[in-house]
């Protein structure tokens, strides 16, 4: 008989969300949680001082979190492997982890992004770069800094394989984090990635000093765009009214803790994109996702006015005022998208 796994979690990627997930998993069970980080200094800090100051300040991590720089130390025998590295490095790291992955393991992506050019979702990258089949995603309104401070929250574990959902719930569900399952992994991942673009837009509005009406408009119409594209690509429309859809969008698009929101805020203050990103010091996936979303929308012929506006702002030097103006002067349309091209006449 081959095989055998431990009921433990490995987290690949020690940024703010990866470290938080490791901490939450440790709080949910008794087993050790192994956190893979690239940086040996950060590993030492986690193992000795129990902090990850670069991303999470003074927060003390659970004692059963153990960091390592070796994927071969983290990945083998873990029932659940969560990969949480920026989308630009995701394929590379997933491929390296694949060296140690076996077909009985569950792999979840905690990264919200899409691969440029191929439009591939992160859980698909996991399936392509490893032998794992029971792959999926974890996504939802999960601002790391709130959760690691012990505030309650909820998340979605999505996979076409029910076993992946069950394992995710068993190993992550706790008093702090409620886990919901969803079989529509495509919808969950698209919602999670695309909402970052809308968050940039609401950040801009906030930075311009605009009030809650504008924010509500951008959130609801932004969700309509995200859902329109998602459904066109085969996602379930209802997923977008769930935690990974509207839930995540509400959190991300109205919180200064959100990196993408902060990108918008910076742009509204008239600063250049590079300067804003430099100051952030973390990856804002929404910038890359805007580009991918626009390409993707073109390939399937779905109009995305808000996301297109963000694109002009980020990459074509348009001013926030002119983008907003363009959005407001479009023809009146029907709200419910049976035919989203139909104008009100």
């Amino acid at each position: 008989m081959s095989g055998g796994l431990k009921e433990r979690v490995a987290v690949v990627g020690g940024g703010s969300w990866g470290t938080t997930l490791a901490h939450l998993a440790a709080m949910a069970g008794d087993e050790e949680v192994v956190l893979w980080m690239r940086d040996a200094e950060a590993v030492r800090e986690v193992n000795e001082a129990r902090t990850n100051r670069r991303y999470l300040g003074d927060v003390t991590l659970a004692p059963t979190v153990r960091a390592t720089t070796e994927l071969g130390d983290a990945v083998p025998d873990a029932r659940l492997v969560i990969v949480c590295v920026p989308s630009s490095a995701f394929r590379e790291v997933a491929g390296q982890a694949g060296e140690f992955v076996t077909g009985d393991q569950v792999l979840l992506s905690a990264t919200k992004g899409l691969e440029p050019r191929t439009f591939v979702r992160m859980s698909q990258v996991l399936a392509e770069e490893t032998c794992a089949r029971k792959v999926g995603a974890i996504s939802g309104p999960n601002l790391a800094k709130e959760l690691i401070a012990g505030q309650p929250g909820a998340t979605v574990v999505a996979s076409r394989y029910r076993e992946a959902i069950v394992v995710g719930a068993q190993l992550l569900h706790s008093r702090v984090l409620r886990v919901y399952g969803n079989l529509d992994v495509k919808g969950v991942e698209l919602a999670g990635a695309l909402k970052n673009v809308i968050a940039i837009a609401t950040g801009v509005a906030h930075g311009l000093g605009l009030g809650v009406n504008v924010r509500a408009m951008l959130i609801t119409r932004g969700l309509a765009e995200v859902q329109r594209l998602g459904v066109r690509l085969g996602a379930d429309a209802l997923t977008f009214s769930g935690l990974a859809g509207i839930g995540d969008l509400l959190a991300t698009a109205s919180s200064e803790l959100s990196r993408n929101f902060r990108v918008g805020l910076g742009l509204a203050q008239g600063r250049a994109l590079e300067a804003v990103l430099d100051e952030l010091g973390e990856v804002a996936e929404g910038v890359n996702t805007t580009r991918v979303a626009l390409e993707l929308a073109r390939s399937v012929d779905v109009p995305l006015p808000i996301i297109e506006g963000v694109g002009r702002l980020l990459f074509q030097g348009a001013t926030p005022g002119s983008v907003l103006d363009d959005l407001m002067t479009r023809a009146a349309r029907y709200e419910i998208d049976f035919d989203y091209t139909a104008e009100v006449r």
Binding site: M1, S2, G3, G4, L5, K6, E7, R79, G95, G98, E99, T102, G103, D104, A127, E128, E129, T130, C131, R133, K134, Y161, R162, E163
Partner: peptide, 26 residues
Amino acid sequence: DGRGRPIDIDRYLRGPTGELVDDDER
């Protein structure tokens, strides 16, 4: 696998303790 590494395919059908698991949905 996708990178040309050998796979132990038996494990697709095994549970965490190494036993064969029947699962029609899977």
